[in-house]
Amino acid sequence: MVSSSPRANAIEARNLFKEFRIVRHGYAGIKGRIGAILRGIKPQEDIVRALDDVSLTIAAGESVALIGRNGSGKSTLLSLLAHVMLPDRGAITFPASADPAHPRIAPLLEVGAGFHPDLTGNQNILFNGSILGLTRTQMEARMEAIRAFADFEETAYYEAPVRTYSSGMFVRLGFAVAVHTDPEIILVDETLAVGDESFQEKCYAKIAEFQREGRTIIFVSHDMDAVRRVATRAVWLGESRIRADGPAPSVIHEYHAALGLPD
């Protein structure tokens, strides 16, 4: 869905630069440092440039896919958008958000990352919700919907520690919590590849619902069928820069041509 009328932008990222220093010692930690000093070795630092002057504007309600090879800077860009990292230079603003200083962003990245193995499913739902910025009362009102979405075979599982869960159940519960936090912007990182087919369909249905509701979706994937299905626009990142930006089919075509792959 491409909106023709000009709307406020959900995300405005301007001139983002990001470098990482990778220090190589024999050992990590204090021992490695001291060892390196004693042997007269200067710690070697490799500088990796992850983003090199990347600017990106995403309108509210758009669904944009980030594509590119491993190490092209997709994950770094996603981390900057999720505000878990700061750019070296450049700025990201969220003008369309109800509270631009604190946009509600739901990262569906390795969902369940915040689950504690010794706590029950129910306890983890409440805690994960509060990490994503919801109050306990808000979460308690959503418990039924979350459990219905995760759709475990037996309700007793919600009272069991999540360490007893299968990896599929883990992901299902994590996804269920994240999609029920009323996000303005949803960041999806390959999460759709997990879970069984019926759960994947449920996730696609939820994403379609988000799109109808006018929420903004940023989607990172190597699965071009998934990209075509979810995104209307694609951004191709290569060598830390934006190589192409436009309608998903034509950007995928360009990307595949550069890789020497058939469409």
Binding site: S79, A82, H83, V84, I105, P107, L109, E110, A113, G114, I131, L132
Partner: peptide, 9 residues
């Protein structure tokens, strides 16, 4: 760290 890498707080 798993959490810190994914979610802001």
């Amino acid at each position: 760290m798993a959490l810190v890498k994914k979610v802001y707080f």
